[in-house]
Design a protein around this nucleic acid. Structure first.
Lengths: 252, 252
DNA sequence: CGTCGAGTTGACATAATTCAAGTAAGGTGG
DNA sequence: CCACCTTACTTGAATTATGTCAACTCGACG
């Protein structure tokens, strides 16, 4: 089964046609080394990507030279979907670790809307969720201090890693450098280093370079104002699988 | 014709069934006074809104008491679409001016995906555009100084007002108070006031309390790093109007 | 005439950046 | 095996951007 289908099927049964479609999205895998670009801002936005393993970030560079990371993508995420609405990629797509990604052509989305309205609606809902969580991050960066913004990053990764791999409890391998964290949280690498140390000293997290352990999840939640939106997602209004076009209803 | 259809039809011919659907979305208009809430964070997210006249903002309040505006909506925008993916509104919906809004039930979206796949794709594309522009704003707030963040706000409003009303050239009525600008741009009202004055002194804008005039559009663009994404939107991959279900192809 | 909301300005405090120096770990070639 | 890189990270001191508090102006309104 495809990685996306696997994640979705924990919440929703998918029909076999839907699962087949998602599997086809992942038919063209390629490997990219850590710190290589998968796509560049300004290139024709002909392909979306399904991230199969590793971490990917999207970022843009600002005129003054600073870099803003917009999103860290984890396995099973669709990468660069927003740019499919444009002729050119709006963001750079960057391998934070060695990754495996599958690329799919923009026209696959067209087929989905034509033939699999229920799956299209699911994708629509997921996209709206991403808008909400991006807005949450905007609120965090616009209104919170640097320590809280780092705490937000940690919780965001923790909760999303739990969705990918339910065995994740309170610790995970942090694949971001201090500079990458800083670019994500809107501060300088030096400041990120200081505040990271402070999170450790205050007992909220522990960190040994490779792994982070969340020691006080409640404390981080209170500090960062993070809201786990995924818990509130509403799939109740999906279209029915249409009789004329649907295949058999798949189990799982 | 509905306001959404009118804006869309400048770029795309809509079928009469699509136009009818959009008109139905706007069948239940109500008037809300300036500085009233249209929807509250945490309430059941049963309805989306089409903004018909006036300005609306969405915002959230952070634990430390600061307020972050996420989006200023202009006439013809769909408001609260992201929250339809959740059981509860994720944001407060706030009338910046006296407004007319039309509310539509969440299930209208279901119908759209079932019966009007091309329109659903258009909505999907617009939503992805919103993700991009929200990301642009994240980059701006995360990486730019306060003066640039205000410049970004001005250009964002200017370019979007031009889409709503092609007669807008370089000046418009600014309906935000200093405090609201500050909440939007991630700073304090006092600081917003200082930097607003500075934009005037440096000759980039003129302002007389009611109206803003952009005197140096290039200068504001260079200062803020603003990118007008709407110019690059790609509607070329829409599904065809399906034969079996479509009405006649409407002109305009 | 008094009050209210919005805006401005000054003085001071704090958060974050900048610049610079230094540590530590991993890789490479001799 | 060691000397010598490079890269990531840390820490201190000085600087700048922004926040905070308080006083004041101004116009709208009853």
């Amino acid at each position: 089964m495809s990685l996306i289908a696997e994640r979705l099927s924990r919440r929703l049964p998918l029909t076999s046609r839907e699962a087949d479609f998602l599997l086809r999205l992942e038919s063209a895998t390629c490997i990219v080394r850590r710190h290589q670009l998968i796509g560049r801002e300004g290139e024709p936005a002909s392909f979306g990507y399904v991230l199969q393993s590793g971490w990917v970030a999207t970022y843009t560079d600002l005129p003054d030279g600073s870099r803003q990371m917009r999103r860290v993508h984890l396995p099973g995420d669709i990468v660069a979907m927003p740019s499919l609405a444009l002729h050119q990629y709006a963001e750079n797509i960057f391998a934070l670790t060695d990754v495996a990604v599958a690329r799919f052509p923009k026209r696959a989305m067209k087929e989905m809307f034509e033939e699999l309205p229920r799956l299209a609606t699911i994708m629509f809902i997921i996209s709206q969720m991403e808008r909400i969580t991006l807005g949450d991050r905007l609120s965090c960066i616009g209104g919170m201090q640097s320590e809280a913004r780092l705490a937000f990053l940690i919780l965001d990764l923790l909760y999303r890693l739990r969705l990918v791999d339910p065995s994740v409890m309170s610790s995970f391998a942090m694949h971001l450098t201090r500079e990458e964290m800083a670019n994500f949280a809107g501060m300088t690498p030096v400041h990120a280093s200081r505040k990271w140390s402070q999170l450790q000293r205050s007992g909220l997290i522990a960190s040994d370079g490779e792994r982070v352990t969340v020691l006080d999840e409640e404390g981080l939640l209170a500090l960062s104002g993070y809201i786990n939106r995924a818990a509130d997602i509403d799939f109740s209004w999906l279209p029915a699988v249409s009789d004329s076009r649907a295949g058999e209803q798949g189990a799982v």
